[in-house]
C-alpha cells in the first residue's frame, strides 16, 4: 500500500471530491498561493477560478457565503487558514450553519465543510489555540479531527458527502505525518472511533495529533511490560464512546489526552462519559493530559511547559497504574 503524507492524503481527497461539480473551495491564499500549508497547490490551474476561489480576509464572509451556497445545493469547502481566525466566523457557524436545517423545519440543509487547522510552534497566544470543544458543543454541527493520512482522506471524503455542516480539523504539525493509504476508493464514516493499539493495562482515549504522542508513550511503557490500549475518537460530534468504554471495562484505568485546555475542554466530556458509563469498572481516578491553562506563551521554554509532551503522557499513565 502506498505510504503518503497527511498533506497528500488531503489533496487526494479534495481531487476526488472535485469530480462532483457542486464542490468548490474558497479561502484565504488557497488559489494562486496553493494555501498556507500547500494543500491546494495546483488546484486553481486544474479547476479554474470559479471553483477555486481566493477570498479576501473576511472569515465571517467566507463561512456565510459557504452556508448560502450550500443551502441551494452546492457543496462548498471553506478553508479558514488557522482555527484561531474561525472565531470571527462563529456567529455564522453557530447561529446559522448548525441550526438552519432545524430552524427551517427540514426544508434546507447546509452540506458544507469548514476545513481548518489547529497547531502551535512559537506562534503564541492568538495563533496556537484549540476550539475543538467549542465546535463540538454545538448540536447541528459535526466535528471531525483525524490523526492519520488514511483517516484524513477517508473522513474528508465523508465530510464532503455529508448532508450536514462539518468542521474538519487538521493540525499544522501533522501535514508531514506519513501512513498507508490504499489506491482504491474508500471513505471512513463520521462518528466511529478506532482502536489504534491494543493493550490490557490502561485505556488512553485521544484523537488528532495526540494519537501519535500517545503511541510513542505506549512504546516507552511497553518496554516495562505496561500494555496501553489507545482509542482514536476521530470524530468529536457525534461522539462514539463505545470502543473507549468497552476498553475501559477491560483495563479499569483510563487516561484522556487532548491538546486543549482542561477545564470545559474536550477531555472533560470524554472523562465524564467514561465515569458515567464505566463507573462500576473504575480502579483509579481518570487522569487527563492537556495544555496548561494559560494563553500559549511565545518563549520556547514557556511554550514547552504549556504543551502536551510524551513525558507528560507517560507520567499520567503511570499515575493511574499506581
Amino acid at each position: 500500500m502506498p505510504v503518503i503524507t497527511v498533506r497528500e492524503a488531503l489533496r487526494q481527497a479534495l481531487h476526488e471530491v472535485m469530480e462532483d461539480q457542486s464542490v468548490f473551495i474558497i479561502g484565504e491564499d488557497i488559489g494562486h498561493y496553493g494555501s498556507t500549508y500547500g494543500v491546494t497547490a495546483g488546484f486553481l490551474e486544474q479547476y479554474g477560478p470559479d471553483r477555486i476561489r481566493d477570498a479576501p480576509i473576511a472569515e465571517a464572509g467566507i463561512v456565510g457565503l459557504a452556508i448560502g451556497a450550500a443551502m441551494v445545493g452546492m457543496r462548498p469547502i471553506a478553508e479558514i487558514m488557522s482555527v484561531n481566525f474561525s472565531l470571527l466566523a462563529f456567529d455564522q457557524l453557530f447561529n446559522h450553519a448548525a441550526k438552519i436545517y432545524s430552524m427551517f423545519g427540514g426544508q434546507m440543509q447546509v452540506p458544507m465543510v469548514l476545513r481548518t487547522t489547529n497547531g502551535w510552534t512559537q506562534l503564541s497566544a492568538t495563533h496556537s489555540q484549540s476550539f475543538d470543544s467549542m465546535f463540538a458543543y454545538m448540536p447541528g454541527l459535526k466535528v471531525v479531527a483525524p490523526a492519520t493520512p488514511y483517516d484524513m482522506k477517508g473522513l474528508l471524503k465523508a465530510s464532503v458527502a455529508d448532508p450536514d455542516p462539518v468542521v474538519f480539523i487538521e493540525h499544522t504539525l501533522m501535514y508531514t505525518v506519513k501512513g498507508e493509504v490504499p489506491e482504491e476508493e474508500y471513505s471512513v464514516p463520521i462518528g466511529r472511533s478506532n482502536i489504534v493499539r491494543e493493550g490490557r493495562h490502561v485505556t488512553v482515549v485521544t484523537y488528532s495529533r495526540m494519537v501519535h504522542l500517545s503511541l510513542q508513550a505506549a512504546e516507552i511503557l511497553a518496554k516495562e511490560g505496561i500494555e496501553v490500549e489507545i482509542v482514536d475518537l476521530r470524530t468529536l460530534r457525534p461522539l462514539d464512546m463505545s470502543l473507549s468504554i468497552e476498553s475501559f471495562k477491560k483495563t479499569n484505568r483510563g487516561v484522556v489526552v487532548t491538546e486543549d485546555w482542561q477545564s470545559f475542554g474536550t477531555s472533560a466530556e470524554i472523562a465524564a462519559r467514561l465515569y458515567e458509563y464505566g463507573f462500576d469498572h473504575l480502579d483509579a481516578p481518570i487522569a487527563r493530559v492537556n495544555f496548561k491553562e494559560v494563553p500559549m506563551p511565545y518563549s520556547k521554554n514557556l511554550e514547552l511547559q504549556t504543551v502536551v509532551t510524551v513525558d507528560r503522557i507517560v507520567h499520567a499513565i503511570r499515575s493511574v497504574l499506581k
Binding site: 484561531n84 481566525f85 512559537q122 503564541s124 497566544a125 492568538t126 511565545y298
Partner: peptide, 24 residues
Amino acid sequence: GRQMFGHFSSRSLRIVSGSSSVGS
C-alpha cells in the same frame, strides 16, 4: 515573552497590543 513578534505594545508610549486576527 508571551506574544509572537509583531505585536508591539508599550503603556508609556501608549502603544496598544493587538491580536493576530486581521483587523480585530
